[in-house]
Simulated assay, not measured.
Amino acid sequence: MDHKVNVVSRSQWGAAAPRQKMTLKASAQRVVIHHTALPRCSGRKECMDRLVSIQRRHMTQNGFDDIGYNFIVGGDGTVYEGRGWGVVGAHTKGNNHDSLGIAFMGNFNNDTPSTESISSVKKLLRAGVTQGFLQREFVLFGHRDLGNTECPGEKLYAALPQLRIAP
């Protein structure tokens, strides 16, 4: 089984530098799954352009120091580095100090997450555990479990059990 996950780095997708970065005090205990609630993107160029605009919106309109998520995954299964491992995100108010935020690109109120994206996130989670960024016994949440929101959308929320990894 291939556990390697290819992550497109911030410099590869054209991320702006963060205003500041806070490091998690320990490995993350929780993973919070989100959706971008935007139309899905197809192809790396379109997804990278979308990421640049999400980061810009998070930094200008939301006042975040960077894109809110630690990682973002496209429908083709490509994983993009957001804030990355070991960095406090800005994705779930009041819950960022011990968690990892992963967003699926698209709106999953109607769309179903692709098998490629689910598979990539599972590999990413396994890599996080192996590398010590994520506790072996981490707890998986949908954003709606921790906040008053529809996020990550009906269809992605229903798919959360598929993201559980065996310890």
Rank of each mutant, 00 (worst) to 15 (best):
S9N: 07
S9P: 05
S9H: 08
R10V: 01
R10N: 07
S11D: 07
S11C: 00
S11V: 07
S11E: 10
S11K: 08
Q12V: 04
Q12Y: 00
Q12R: 05
Q12L: 00
Q12D: 09
W13M: 02
W13T: 00
W13K: 02
W13P: 03
G14A: 03
G14R: 03
G14W: 00
G14E: 02
A15K: 03
A15W: 03
A16K: 10
A16Y: 00
A16N: 02
A17P: 11
A17V: 00
A17D: 07
A17L: 04
P18M: 05
P18E: 05
P18N: 02
P18D: 08
R19K: 13
R19N: 06
R19V: 11
R19P: 01
R19A: 14
Q20R: 12
K21Q: 12
M22E: 12
M22R: 11
M22S: 08
M22Y: 05
T23H: 11
T23L: 14
T23D: 08
L24S: 05
L24F: 07
L24C: 12
K25C: 04
K25I: 06
A26S: 14
A26V: 05
A26Y: 12
A26P: 04
A26Q: 15
S27R: 10
S27Y: 06
S27A: 15
A28P: 06
A28M: 08
A28D: 04
A28T: 06
A28S: 07
Q29L: 07
Q29D: 11
Q29E: 10
R30N: 13
R30K: 15
R30Q: 08
R30H: 14
V31N: 06
V31D: 05
V31G: 06
V31R: 01
V32A: 04
V32D: 03
V32K: 00
I33H: 03
I33A: 04
I33G: 02
I33V: 14
I33F: 04
I33C: 05
H34E: 08
H34P: 04
H34T: 03
H35I: 00
H35W: 09
H35N: 15
H35D: 15
H35G: 14
H35F: 07
T36I: 11
T36E: 11
T36N: 13
T36W: 04
T36S: 15
A37D: 13
A37W: 14
A37V: 07
A37Q: 13
A37G: 10
L38I: 15
L38H: 13
L38M: 13
L38N: 13
L38V: 14
P39L: 09
P39H: 10
P39K: 11
P39G: 14
P39S: 12
P39M: 08
R40K: 13
R40Y: 05
R40E: 13
R40H: 11
C41I: 01
C41T: 09
C41Q: 13
C41H: 01
C41K: 11
S42M: 04
S42I: 04
S42T: 14
S42V: 09
G43W: 07
G43Q: 08
R44H: 12
R44C: 07
K45L: 09
E46I: 10
C47A: 15
C47N: 12
C47H: 10
C47S: 15
M48T: 14
M48L: 09
D49H: 10
D49F: 10
D49N: 15
D49A: 13
